[in-house]
Structure formats: structure tokens, C-alpha cells
Amino acid sequence: MSTKRTITFEVMRYRPESDAEPSYQTYSVPCEQEWVVLDALLYIKDNLDTTLSFRWSCHMAVCGSCGMIVNGEPMLSCKAFLRDYPDVIRVEPLTNFPIERDLVIVMDDFITKLASIKPYIIPKEERKVEQGEYLQTPVQLKKFKQYTLCINCLLCYAACPQYGLVPEFVGPAALALAHRYNLDSRDNGRSQRQEIAASHDGVWECSFVGACSEVCPKHVDPAGAIQQTKIASTMDYFLGFLQGGS
């Protein structure tokens, strides 16, 4: 019994060596019922057009490489089940990023910003190995655990209109990760991260559209992290006045 369903894929193509700008190419793909968009792209690459370029790896919403715009919505293509889509599916590279080739985007800007917020524990006290591990209670973990689930898939940047309009904006995932380490009981690096997070291009470029949190495949809620950082930074600012600081 054949359960195949033919779906038309309109895929954005951009070949830098020959194209002045992107255009759409249409592929007709015989799809299995349980496929995701990534399966169909792999079918195209294996059977219809070997020149189509896209990133992917784990096929299970962990690696964060296969983010694309599927019918207008930022999605992990490995998590975009065909049963949820009509017979015509449009696939584009993530918005707000330069296109390297076809569905592959340039993510250098994000990597630079991610590094700038120091996404690692800056310990309160340096401990030697023989002193044992840094201890943390389950409640202390709970405070930030949600923000550790980020897989750097960049769907939030693709969804964020302010990042599109103001490319200097540090952006959702990087600010959420800054918040994650700031909340960690083992960490003492908040003042260093605030140099970026509380700057003009940090949380203050955010106008709480909230789209980042809606598209996040791991429910990290970067928008919430940014609002919490705004509140904390505002407290810092006014307390600084009271204490006669800057």
C-alpha cells in the first residue's frame, strides 16, 4: 500500500557564483507520511538536485543546525512534520541573516555576540581539584535550568524584528545565556556580562515583541530573560545613584 503524498517544495536558492539575488526553485517530492521537512530536503539532494545546500546534523532537535523558515515561520526543519503542512511548502533560509548559499546562512555575527557575553562560569572562588566540585542544590539549578536548554539554532534571531532592523542588537539567545550564567549560584561574572547586556545594544534594544520565545523549539523564553535583565539593570542603576556611584 502506498502512503506517499506528493508535496511541492518552493525552495529559496542563492548561488553566489552566478546569482545576483535569491530566487525560488520548485521540487515535487514523493513524501512518506511521517517525514519532516528535512527528510524532503534530503530526498531532493539525493535524488533530484545534488547542488542544493543546507545545514543539518542530528535530525532530532538537539544540534540546532537545521533552522529554516518554513511557510513563513522559523522552524527546525527536523521538527517540522509534513502532516502539519499543506501540499505546497515554502522553505527559506533564516531571516535577518546574510545568505551564504541556498539555505545556509552566515552566523558570524551571532558567534561574536555570544562570545562577548562570556557564556561560561566565571567562578566565585578558584578551587583546586583536591578541594572537590562546586556544589549546587536542585533549587539553585532550577533557577536557570530553562536557559541552559538553548541549542543556538538562531530561530529567535530570525523571529526578532528588532535584530533585523538594528543589527547591532546583541539579540535573544546571547542575552538569555548571559542571564543563565548570571543566575548560576557558582558564578560571579555578572558585572562583566552587564558591560554588554546593560549597554545600549544589549537588553535596551529589545521592545518585548516576544516572537523569540514563541518560536524557540526548546522553550528557553529569551524574551523573559531579557525583561528580567531590564528589571535587574534598572534596579542596579537606581541603587547606584543611592549609593553615590555612577
Partner: peptide, 15 residues
């Protein structure tokens, strides 16, 4: 990067 003075206007905005 310099810390922003946005809290001056954001505090009253939020309140």
C-alpha cells in the same frame, strides 16, 4: 561598552 542610561526612562515606563 558603556552602560546605558535607559533605566531612567524605562523605570517610569514599566511603573
Amino acid at each position: 561598552m558603556a552602560k546605558s542610561h535607559k533605566p531612567i526612562v524605562w523605570g517610569p515606563f514599566a511603573a
